[in-house]
Amino acid sequence: MSIFFLWGYCFLFSSVQSQQTNQMVTGQMYIEKFIQAEGIRLHYLDWGGSGLPLILIHPLGDSPYIFEDFAAALKNKFRIIAYSRRGHSKSAATVLHYDNSTLVSDIKILLDSLQVNKANLLGWSMGGNEITEFAIRYPERTNKLIYFESGYDLSDDAFRDIIKTIPKSPFPDSLDLLTIDAYRKWYHKFWFSDVEWNSTLEANLHGSTRINSDGSVVTLPNDSISKMFLESATSYHRNYRMIQAPALVIYAKPFFVSPVKDEKVLFGYAEMERNIIHPWRLRSMYQIKAELKNVTIKELPEGSHTSFIFLSKDSLVETIDHFLSH
């Protein structure tokens, strides 16, 4: 469910050595693995590839499967790894801590377990908080940062204003959760109405849900965990001045695409973009240019906060390839 950081608003593993992994080969171009460490079981996908690793961090409410097509396009030059954040998809934690410090520690667990001394980090949406803090805390292990539509400080009042004014609720209702087909229809319409349904969206749909015995759908993470993620995200203020690593900051616009063609709803989305999101985006860019020491900003030609990974894929791959290779 590609619900990102908005969704969060409106078990079982004891301590074992982090080097131990479970592995299963899938029909895809990656291998699925698990890392078991104290209090956490991290699930991740490894596309292999050569070169310095690029770690992909998915948004709130999604799974690493959202990167399937994108990661496959980059694996020829970089080792691509995407993991399920705690509480998401197949990852699980015994202690329900979802603050940014804990999430950063999970990145370190991943790198330590894979014996990766230094990596590039890509954070989508709320994932920008994690890569910011990791780069501050572990500069010697951070090569380059990619803010993947995540160059926004979520402690800004604009984020709360978006939640209050969004014309259509970002939550599925009880009818949308009756079956996986009903949920797929809602999910596609609300978050990816400008993209044709594809195998990556299908994989992410199944990676971010659980099906009950009666066929009804439970979204992952659940509402209480999502709320804890969001509380953490909105309380973290980014101090870009502390970052030493070069950064690429990618923006898409508009932030949302209306899920319906109703004139009143279309007007509401346009007004929210014009009066709240666009000024927030400009403030964010100004802050980043002023505070990050070595930054490149890229505005994409097509796609929203969710759909740009598909609609601007070629531009994304070319931009990231050039940034990481030079």
Rank of each mutant, 00 (worst) to 15 (best):
I80L: 11
P64V: 00
G303I: 00
L96D: 11
D112N: 13
R210C: 07
F159E: 06
P254C: 13
V265E: 03
T209M: 09
W191Y: 07
S155H: 08
D176I: 05
S312F: 03
H58T: 02
N22A: 10
N222T: 06
G207Y: 00
A203H: 10
P221I: 02
S91W: 00
E32S: 12
I277W: 02
F5H: 15
L248D: 09
L145A: 08
Y30P: 01
I250N: 06
N120T: 07
D262Y: 05
L121A: 09
I320T: 06
S91T: 01
N294H: 14
A135W: 07
V195R: 02
Q17V: 13
L45Y: 00
N222Y: 03
L230K: 11
K289L: 15
D161E: 14
L12Y: 10
A93H: 02
I297S: 07
W197L: 06
L96A: 15
S169T: 11
R283A: 09
I276N: 03
F78A: 08
V218K: 15
E133V: 14
R85I: 09
N204P: 06
K144R: 13
A233T: 06
S150T: 02
A37Y: 01
F13E: 08
Y98C: 08
A37M: 04
A82S: 12
P167K: 01
D99F: 05
K77E: 14
L114R: 03
W197D: 04
K118M: 14
D321K: 15
I276Y: 01
S307F: 07
F192P: 01
F4D: 13
N22C: 12
D262S: 06
C10W: 09
V116M: 07
S89D: 11
N22V: 11
L114K: 06
E263N: 14
Q23Y: 10
D106I: 01
R137H: 06
H188W: 02
V104D: 00
E130P: 05
S155N: 09
N294Q: 14
D176C: 05
L114G: 07
E149V: 10
S232K: 04
T234S: 10
F134L: 05
P221F: 01
K118C: 06
N204D: 10
D69P: 13
H88E: 04
E291H: 12
Y251P: 05
V295Y: 04
A182C: 12
S208C: 06
P279L: 12
V104R: 00
E302F: 10
E133F: 12
I163L: 05
L52Q: 11
W124F: 03
I180Y: 03
